[in-house]
Design a binder for these strands. Structure first.
Length: 274
DNA sequence: TGAGATGTTCACAT
DNA sequence: TATGTGAACATCTC
């Protein structure tokens, strides 16, 4: 379940392995992976070179040398893997990029939710609507307290759901939303507009620090996430709330409970998250 | 055996 | 406009 830290980890892996190697062939084994015409995709990508790999929120942007960009979203279980030239497609392999150096990059997706789309470089926001409306990246410079607090005040939504909305800020998913709320001692059901400025400041710092820390840990391996070279992350061992239902809160020892907020499983401490 | 849970985004309903 | 719900899928658990 790639969230921002996992996508960033994959981005770094792909940057290294695509690294100016020509893509000599593309195989698409699941046509619905692609938004747009599959033939057009294959034709444009074949013979091109990935100059660099960018990221915006949970989207990967593979910059080709022919003024095209592959916009890739892994959704739930999408996964890139580096393989040698003899590797055969697996049950859920949806696309294969064969590189000039003989290696292959597989895109696998057990649940088939992930999507790829070819767009003209620079036209991403015109062609991918969620990129056009996406909120700021969660960094010190781009996620300001003034923005965060003002935007929180405008919404009555439960804070958990608010944090998951990529239009408010980019990159948080279910795992890290639970984590930053636990760290900030905020109840996931609290309406966004009921968070005061001091709490917003704390929330902001926790979001920025937690995501940076998770990237440093190579992401969380909870269900299927593995980086592009096949290594699991370590972040799952550092989580305080997500996946710890029934276990004692590390702060006060009370039992963590699981509820549903915005249709998503949400684990929190009812004693210290107010 | 089969219902329910898993989690991201979009389309649609209210 | 803002918010909520179900669908797109496959797999695992109870």
């Amino acid at each position: 379940m790639p969230e921002l830290p996992e996508v960033e980890t994959v981005r770094r892996g792909l940057s290294k392995y695509f690294a100016n190697e020509k893509i000599v062939a593309v195989q698409v084994l699941y046509r619905k992976l692609l938004l747009g015409d599959p033939e057009e995709f294959i034709q444009q990508v074949t013979g091109s070179t990935v100059r660099e790999v960018d990221r915006r929120g949970k989207f990967l942007l593979l910059r080709l040398n022919n003024r095209q960009t592959i916009v890739s979203h892994m959704r739930m279980e999408g996964r890139y893997a580096i393989e040698d030239g003899s590797a055969q497609p697996r049950k859920h392999t949806e696309a294969i990029f064969k590189l000039a150096n003989g290696s292959q990059i597989f895109y696998d997706d057990t649940r088939k939710f992930g999507k790829m789309q070819l767009v003209v470089t620079g036209q991403e926001t015109e062609e991918v609507r969620s990129l056009a409306t996406m909120g700021p990246e969660p960094t010190e410079a781009t996620l300001t307290l003034d923005y965060l607090f003002a935007r929180l005040q405008k919404s009555k939504k439960a804070i958990k759901g608010w944090l998951l909305d990529q239009n408010n800020l980019a990159g948080l998913g279910n795992i890290y939303a639970d984590e930053v709320l636990w760290m900030s001692k905020i109840n996931p059901l609290r309406p966004a507009c009921r968070i005061n400025r001091e709490e917003a400041e704390l929330l902001r710092e926790n979001i920025i620090q937690e995501l940076a820390f998770a990237i440093d840990q190579g992401g969380s391996t909870v269900h299927s996430f593995i980086d592009a070279s096949g290594h699991a992350g370590h972040m799952q061992d550092k989580l305080h709330a997500y996946g710890r239902v029934g276990q004692p809160c590390e702060r006060d020892g009370y039992e963590l409970v699981k509820i549903k907020v915005a249709q998503r499983g949400t684990t929190y401490c009812p004693h210290c998250q107010k």
